[in-house]
Amino acid sequence: MKTDKQQVGLAIVGCGTIGRIRAELARAFPGIGWIGLCDIKSDIGRKLAEDVEADFYTDDYRELLNRPEVTATIIATDENFHFDPTMLAIEKGHALFIEKPLATDARQSAQILAAIEENGIDAVVGYTQRFRRRFLAIKERLVTGQIGDVHSVVTRAFMNRMVPIATTQRTQERATLTPMVVSGTHSLDMSMWLMEGKKPVSVFAQSCDKVLSAHGTKDSTFGVFTMEDGTIWSMNISWALPEVWPGAVYGIEIGIVGTEGVIDIEDTHRDLVMATNVAQGGGYVPDGYVPPARHVDFLTSYPPGDLHDGQLWGPMREETNSWFQRVYAGARTPHATAADGHRNLMMTMAMDLSAKRGVPVALPVDPDELMQELVG
């Protein structure tokens, strides 16, 4: 832990849903001495600046990140726009919190990681589910050898289609906005974190697009990874379930088999169900899209957490406040590193590449090769 604690000057680039959550938590954290905000949509940005009594607001990220008060930066823009503000924050030497992914271009992701490592930046990536009590408990059992050496893993994620519709509607650059890259990355990160130390050497995957091809993306991607030590891992996601599917975002099931035991995880949120005549809204609803009324909800299935008395409670609160403690006091935290984030992107894209080729792909894959074949 640090003994010479200095007040943190925090910049948040991107004032949408996640930027707002983190800004509100920052205002309540005693180690944050200054908050600056940026968003290209000035109405959204200025409203958040007013709500959290920010010290500075601009619609130009360069103006914000060049402020002398800034010592730490959160990158919370849309996925396609992480690269430029992230590289400037690295140049300025800021501690970094980057919402996943580092970038949607594998070459840019590699460039970001290289810059972070060359400049000795403390950078983490937003994989919120690592901060849930159940997964921390499972991680502890694995690292203490309670089920022996893991040799077989199965991961399944199911989501309704509101997320891909919302994600693709914001941009025409959709070639890399696939179920694995955008959403499967969360269950992939969780699985790789739980299998810490396992090195993937190949993947064979397949995809289909009967529903979401009209939105420029795939419905589902299923794949099998082989690890260097012979461990096999089935990684599957579908984000094409009907809009009326009760999960606010997604449910995950993971089975982990070791030489001495097994851990079986059902994280589908079907243990807390609400049925009501009152129509329920969706988790992610883009402008111009009106989803059908939903009258059944799996409560607690919104990944950031849940609102009570005007405050968000749950893993995103834990994740954000832990990062503030990391930056302010040097606390040890279970955040995903920049290297984890880059690995996750490369693995999700390798699944898409294998599905496109129809054959197994050897890992690791060169970023240029990935982008050339996936985007052209």
Rank of each mutant, 00 (worst) to 15 (best):
L299E: 08
S238V: 00
R270E: 10
L241D: 02
G255K: 04
E243Q: 14
T231F: 06
A293N: 13
L241W: 03
S301L: 00
R294F: 09
N277L: 14
A240I: 03
L299S: 06
D297P: 07
E243N: 12
E266S: 14
G282C: 03
V290K: 15
G310W: 02
D287H: 11
Y302F: 11
G230V: 00
N236R: 03
G310Y: 00
A248Y: 01
S234I: 02
G258V: 04
D229H: 13
P291I: 05
I232W: 12
S234Q: 08
A275Y: 09
P242Y: 11
A275M: 12
D287V: 14
P286V: 06
V290F: 12
E260V: 03
I254K: 01
T276G: 15
V249P: 01
D271S: 14
I237P: 01
L307I: 14
D297M: 14
S238A: 10
L312A: 07
G305F: 00
P246A: 08
A275C: 12
G288S: 09
Y284D: 07
L307N: 13
Q311D: 13
D264S: 09
G283P: 03
I232G: 12
G251D: 04
D309V: 00
I237D: 03
F298D: 01
T268L: 02
V285M: 07
W313C: 05
Q311G: 06
E243D: 11
P304S: 04
I252N: 00
G283W: 02
V290G: 15
P242M: 11
G281Y: 06
S234P: 02
T231G: 09
D297S: 15
D309S: 05
I237A: 06
G255L: 09
G247F: 02
A275T: 15
D271N: 15
P286Y: 07
A293L: 06
Y250V: 05
H269V: 03
V290R: 12
P242L: 11
D271T: 14
M274R: 10
G261M: 02
L272K: 08
V244N: 15
L312E: 02
D287K: 13
Y289N: 08
H295F: 13
G230S: 04
G281D: 11
G251E: 07
G281W: 01
L307K: 14
A293D: 15
Y284F: 10
H308Y: 12
D297Y: 12
D271P: 15
G258M: 01
A248W: 01
P246F: 05
